[in-house]
Design a protein around this nucleic acid. Structure first.
Lengths: 201, 201, 201, 201
DNA sequence: AATGAATGAGGCTTCATTCAT
DNA sequence: TATGAATGAAGCCTCATTCAT
């Protein structure tokens, strides 16, 4: 992990942008504002990022990659699709909880943005999401999950619920903990998708 | 249902705005464009709506009220929390499927907008969502649903999954049917939240 | 003095306009505002006045004519240019004091407006001002005033001082009486400000 | 007197604005027009001035400060309140005569503008006017002026007359000299307009 | 004679972005 | 590489004014 001076400047800009976007909204935030807060000239921002939107789209790449690397690592250690799913939910919720500004940018300005779909930042996320799909498919194949499950739909349940909870959480100024939802959420999810006669985790 | 000339004009503007916002995005769309498409002067738009954002926020009021009225009507006719939940999911998905542009505006530009929260349009939606909560609480009280369910979390599962599916659907240009997901979705949901020994719906 | 219904409407509009212009400023005031306050439709205002500026320019005609008629009447009764000048100053100040909103419109929006110069309303004022010039010229001819006086300049002193005082008065929300200045003002005008026995300037 | 490039640009804009406002009127003038004439982009104007009205209000600061500095300097050199008053009148009239466009902006668009009162530009003027008051008070104290003079009223006579003359001058396209009025004006102010031996009213 | 509803016309203002240094 | 200064481009919005009723 080489961190040249340049690399540090870039990351400083990204972090500041995350913060400013989260606080003020993407449209409402201005480059001037970000530059001032990051103690960098406006022109410097354009040294690193092609446009304001490009800056926004660059925000998730790094944290997402790191998150999904950790996720991949954990999934290797865990046995059982149910347990893996619990780990996934936990890791995601924990990550959002610890990076509320990043969560806000992701939930409020990136998901729902069609242009983001064609972005390398989105590619990283898609890759990560594939891990979830794979766990679900494994669960179905192994018989741990119901055989008639639609993997896409099941993943939608997992991600949709998380997104809904996190979005509410960031929009209301995150008054209470996200983590508290992990266990009951997993319970409901698994009860719904596991084989009725499964001996369970 | 009195529909004065004025009322018709207003609705025409709302419908056009929905369409233009859905196609071009809120920021990208211009008042000029909407005015031209609605065959109305720009100034006329401002006769009815105070600002471009005000116009956006006025879009859901009517359709949402109608949808939730229909929902309330149906829920009265149906017995059983599980069956009611199926009706809810069906009505929502069916409505989005039949009004893809409205669905797009709602999913991409309204939910996730903090300012929308203070809006009368959002109030209508909040009222409607309360119906869902009530059904879940009824199910828990009647013993049809598991007693340890968290109603907020359960509602988050229902709405989150729907939102996720609909958002994907509008962002990808809605290639296939939404309705197809209703039954498997309800199956998974109910299997997860119903009492294990419930004799079923 | 025929006052048809129409004439009453017109006067109502003029009075309301005077009030609104005085309170909010000419540019800041809107026709809508005046119409609402006068309990008249916007279109009705345009029945009587060609434009917003035309409305403004129509304000002084009547009151000015009345004021200068009174002035002419009084001047006939009074002997001596000095006494006449006192009457003039008194009448003007008294009139402004009793019609502060009219005074505001006159001082803030009419004088200093080049377009107003070509107006019949301004014509009335010009006629009235001529009376003042005539009194000054009479005073010079009769030997009551200094023979080397420049009548234009002298009139400028009288009017300029009054305008300055009234302008200050309307701009500060007219806290105190205008009339108090009449006597000292006349004294200074007639006698000058230096000590009679001063050996020099 | 440091004059950076930026400072020059700013002054260029102010000078152009003065000219354009004087020729076309404040409302009638457009930012586009000023920008074009000053060979500067519209956006550049907003780099230096927050709003069109802010631009207007910024016009008098510098020239007024300079004028009042010169005035203060002269007043120190001159003995006698009467002579000082003559100097004041001369300096003001001379300054307006030499800067007719500035005079127009000041007389037609700034004095009489309530919002201008809260401005730093107006503050400078208020400070300057205080010098005049002081001279009058000195004259009274020293016995050179009548002991019963009201200083505020006397100042109003001086300023009011000047303002009236200058306003007329700018509104009529300044056909003739302003300076010609200085001596007779001062004479009348100091000596009054009645014959010294008049038997009086 | 009176009006409510509709609009034409255009100005101010804002930023993302660039460029000369 | 870094920046302060400059601007191009365009959109929102406001009203005075008109017109059909």
């Amino acid at each position: 992990m080489v961190t040249t001076k340049t690399e540090l400047r870039k990351q400083k800009i990204l972090d500041t942008a995350t913060k400013v976007f989260a606080q003020r909204g993407f449209q409402e935030a201005t480059i001037t504002e970000i530059a001032k807060e990051a103690k960098v000239s406006e022109a410097s921002i354009y040294e690193y990022f092609s446009t304001k939107e490009g800056l926004l789209f660059s925000i998730p790449a790094r944290s997402s990659r790191e998150l999904f690397e950790v996720m991949a690592f954990h999934l290797k250690l865990i046995r059982g699709a149910g347990n893996k799913l619990r780990a996934i939910v936990y890791l995601l919720m924990d990550s959002y909880q610890n990076h509320p500004e990043f969560a806000a940018v992701l939930m409020l300005f990136l998901k729902h943005n069609k242009k983001f779909l064609d972005t390398s930042g989105h590619h990283v996320i898609k890759e990560g999401v594939r891990q979830i799909t794979r766990v679900i498919e494994e669960g179905i194949e192994s018989g741990e999950f119901r055989g008639d499950l639609n993997p896409y739909l099941t993943r939608a349940m997992v991600l949709g619920t998380i997104e809904h909870l996190v979005t509410n959480w960031v929009m209301t100024g995150h008054p209470d903990s996200l983590i508290q939802f992990v266990d009951p959420l997993i319970d409901s999810l698994l009860a719904g998708i596991e084989q009725a006669d499964a001996t369970t985790k």
